[in-house]
Nucleic acid binder design. Structure first.
Lengths: 254, 254
DNA sequence: CGCAAATTTGAACCAGCTCAACCGTAGTGG
DNA sequence: CCACTACGGTTGAGCTGGTTCAAATTTGCG
């Protein structure tokens, strides 16, 4: 797929490059390789189960737009959302090394994604070490997000958790230029939020209401407006270093 | 470093190969490369901080023996242990792509480890795709452990959490042949356990006592005896598929 | 309009927390 | 040998953050 006629922002690799750009100086070579992997574009409807627990992995996806939830279900119906995948995130990248999934991947919105052929990715990783390095970084960053989620779940109060997840989502969207300030379309129900934060739906609601009453944010179904991000970061104890988005000019060139 | 004179079990790569052996058929080529990386052996005393939050990464370690905790500290002293690293586990492998650590790595016991020189690892990964694949798998498995920890923290009861972590530790030690059955030396205090499970020390204690009273296990400082592992798995709802230790004979050869 | 999904609120309850104290065991130094 | 200390574990009591159950209200949408 030629990309010469496309503007930078239309390249399939755009969001991923933006994310990596926080750490690497991403050269055309790597961007071209990613674009080259993006031969097939797929779209999923909301609630579509992209991968189900027990399924064999067939593909790796690079999200172009939309929100995807990675969730685990216990026998009795309890659900835990392990992470949220946004534009520029890879799905099943490292997990595709396994025989089968232990998680569901659910499209929460309309999702546009590029489907990578796994053998082709493997070939390219084997021969293109810069690409491998770049994708390893993306992978390591995702692992860092999981670790921070563990900290939230284990040691933060309900109020801190809610504030923290909002701060994280804001920051992650900023990295891929999908948020600046003002109202944010956030296609998560309070039930989703509860399942991310390991809380009950009802207490999640009350906690959000508390933050609304404190004038830190406004909330409607599908939309939040952060009114005082500084204060929100304060209650969350939010430190963004775990995102490792340093925007260094002396970064490694890939 | 020649390994010809060593028995299989003495090779530095032994535990890592055992872990990978659940999925790959690990050939001599990869094992030799790992052995070759293990040029420098280091030991840490209990409580030694191998890496501290904020430190730049200097090395990658392969644990030969001992237990290491990866922990995060909040401003007010709350601590969350994100994971436990055992023999055969790599420390700082993917995180070494970052400028600096956001976690502490603490030796909980005497720890023997092999120190890898990062540039050398990078070179080898770039040129040896089989090695890269094998280590990527180890990495993906660790990510899977984190995801399961998130499920525990978010959606399991105190009793399920305690049972689950014991099942996980048993299984992980079995994979590297460090446990079969009977008494298990477990160098974690109840405070450590509490910080892994996101619970208070006191409630952790009471929960353990409950399992002891139910005759599922015996507990002393530094030692547990699992009396009824089947029952313990039952209360935990333990499914070992997230460890991805399938011991398949048709696995990919690396 | 009418249905379904999402949110909000109230009320009662309880799992897990904090505070406080005590016990056992293993050094350690006089 | 004993006193002292430190650390890990145990137990009680009271409290509270978060849960469950139940029901009402709002919102989105065909």
């Amino acid at each position: 797929m030629s990309v010469k006629s496309e503007t930078e922002n239309d390249r399939p690799s755009h969001h991923l490059a933006a994310k990596l750009g926080g750490f690497f100086r991403v050269g055309d070579q790597v961007a071209d390789m990613v674009d080259d992997l993006c031969r097939e574009k797929v779209t999923f409807r909301p609630r579509h189960r992209i991968v189900g627990a027990g399924d064999a992995y067939g593909s790796i996806y690079l999200i172009q737009s939309g929100w995807v939830l990675r969730a685990s279900h216990l026998q009795d119906g309890r659900r835990q959302i392990v992470n949220i995948a946004l534009a520029g995130d890879l799905l099943c990248f490292n997990a595709s090394l396994f025989k089968k999934s232990t998680f569901d991947l659910i499209a929460r919105t309309n999702v546009e994604a590029y489907r990578f052929d796994i053998p082709r990715v493997m070939d390219m990783l084997a021969s293109q070490s810069k690409l491998a390095l770049a994708l390893s970084w993306a992978n390591a960053q995702e692992e860092s997000l999981l670790a921070e989620r563990i900290v939230s779940l284990g040691r933060r109060s309900a109020c801190e958790k809610v504030a923290h997840i909002f701060c994280e989502i804001l920051e992650r969207l900023r990295i891929v230029s999908l948020y600046d300030q003002g109202p944010l379309r956030m296609p998560l129900s309070q039930e989703d939020l509860a399942d991310i934060l390991g809380m009950s739906l009802i207490h999640t609601n009350r906690t959000i209401r508390g933050l609304v009453r404190a004038k830190l944010l406004r909330y409607r179904a599908g939309e939040v407006v952060i009114l005082d991000e500084t204060a929100l970061r304060g209650v969350a104890g939010f430190e963004d270093d775990y995102l490792h988005f340093t925007r260094q000019t002396d970064g490694v060139f890939v």
